[in-house]
Amino acid sequence: MRHIISILLENEPGALSRVVGLFSQRNFNIETLNVAPTEDPSLSRLTVTTEGDDRVIEQITKHLNKLIDVVKLVDLTEGNHIERELMLVKVKALGASRDEVKRTVDIFRAQIVDVTPSVYTVQITGDAGKLDAFVQAMAPIGILEVARTGVSGISRGDKILSL
């Protein structure tokens, strides 16, 4: 099963490489990885999505917790949560397909954020599934470039991941 693990990490040099290194060292897989500072400058928040059965996920969270730079973590998929990813896509927009791109962008509630005579740059947010669907819909028209942020997430309701 796919899991989204969010980690509060000491904002120290080398901390990120410990997390990433752990995944390769122990043969765990990383599907997406997203990291940025939080409101507390001493902490970064890192979100990984990974695939694995219960035993593997248990090992992943235990080993992550063992890293001294990991302050706290949560497996968001254990409860209700909000998952978002942002994607920027350049698609071919020539002749008849220019309209079709525009229509599809509207259907997906995406936005065109840059335009040239032959290219639209589209911005879209949503869960990973929505982004995948958009890529699929655009594929026949011609995708030129994709930049995805990787998943970020937060739990629903009053539950909070903080110090």
Partner: peptide, 14 residues
Amino acid sequence: IVGVTRPIVKHSFA
């Protein structure tokens, strides 16, 4: 050396 030893230490400091 922090990089080289990363998988074989409990922790490291620079």
